[in-house]
Amino acid sequence: MSRPLQVQVSATRMLTEAVREFTFTPCSGHLPAFSPGSHVQVHLPLAAGTLRNAYSLTSDPADNRHYRIAVRLQEHSRGGSRFLHREVQVGDTLQLSAPANLFALHSTASLHILIAGGIGITPFMAYIAALEQRQANFELHYVYRQGQSDAYVDELQQRLGTRLHTYNQRPDLNHILRERPLGSHVYSCGPQPLLDAVRQQANALGWPAQRVHWEAFSAAQPGRHSPLPFP
């Protein structure tokens, strides 16, 4: 197992009422390079012991002078997001695992269709930076609750223009996925109901399984009904 990375919190900002962004810089040396879709585990020294929470890297993979993550406050979680939101300040030092990638881009895709639910936008921020640099064909479909889980939406509207499609209700996945160019890949990230819906619709339309990719990010709160496919 590789040694943890020692980093300093160099900046924070609130992206929404519930989402806080953190910028980490190395305490010494350089940060390892990473690929789009990578995550790190942040070692959180809670009173009950060290908790290791995984967060997607949102920063540009071409620039490893710093890492960025964005964390949604989950009041009923194990305490990691509360610690990051309420205890961690600029100047603090933390330990991170080296980046790992379980949600990689497929470089041969003719079209990349990105579908994000709420805080599931985070891995796609690094995707977008890489896809723009490659001048690749892509579009982003972003489902969120305004003011709560709409992190980066203003930036994305300015940056992507007509390649960004936003929703405050369940999107029409049949419309998004039907009649796409041969060689298209679809990627979804967010809570399980959204991932299930994307996979089911892709399967119904005959998408090859190897072109459908997903990463789970959060679950609906117990006992809480929502008409949207994310909490």
Results as ranks from 00 to 15, higher is better:
D63M: 12
D63R: 09
N64P: 04
R65N: 14
R65Y: 00
R65F: 01
Y67R: 03
Y67T: 12
Y67W: 13
R68V: 11
R68M: 15
R68A: 15
I69Q: 00
I69W: 01
A70P: 11
A70V: 04
V71C: 05
V71S: 01
V71K: 07
R72A: 05
R72N: 07
L73M: 02
L73D: 04
L73W: 03
Q74T: 09
E75H: 03
H76F: 08
H76L: 14
S77G: 13
S77D: 05
S77R: 05
R78M: 15
G79S: 00
G79C: 02
G80R: 02
G80D: 07
G80L: 10
S81T: 12
R82W: 06
R82T: 10
F83M: 01
F83V: 02
F83K: 00
F83T: 00
L84M: 12
L84K: 08
H85I: 04
H85V: 09
R86N: 06
E87F: 04
V88C: 09
V90N: 09
V90G: 10
G91N: 10
G91D: 04
D92P: 07
D92M: 06
D92T: 02
T93Q: 15
T93N: 13
Q95M: 06
Q95H: 14
Q95W: 06
Q95R: 15
Q95L: 08
L96F: 08
L96W: 05
S97R: 03
A98S: 03
A98E: 06
A98H: 14
P99L: 15
P99K: 08
P99N: 11
A100E: 13
L102A: 07
L102N: 15
L102M: 11
F103V: 00
F103H: 01
F103S: 04
L105C: 14
L105Q: 09
L105K: 04
H106F: 09
S107L: 14
S107E: 13
S107P: 07
T108G: 14
T108R: 13
T108A: 09
A109W: 13
A109F: 09
H112F: 00
I113L: 14
I113K: 00
L114G: 05
L114Y: 06
L114D: 02
L114I: 08
I115P: 03
A116R: 06
A116Q: 10
A116T: 05
A116Y: 07
A116M: 04
A116V: 06
G117E: 14
I119Y: 05
G120R: 00
I121P: 08
I121Y: 05
T122E: 01
T122L: 01
T122R: 12
F124R: 03
F124M: 08
F124G: 15
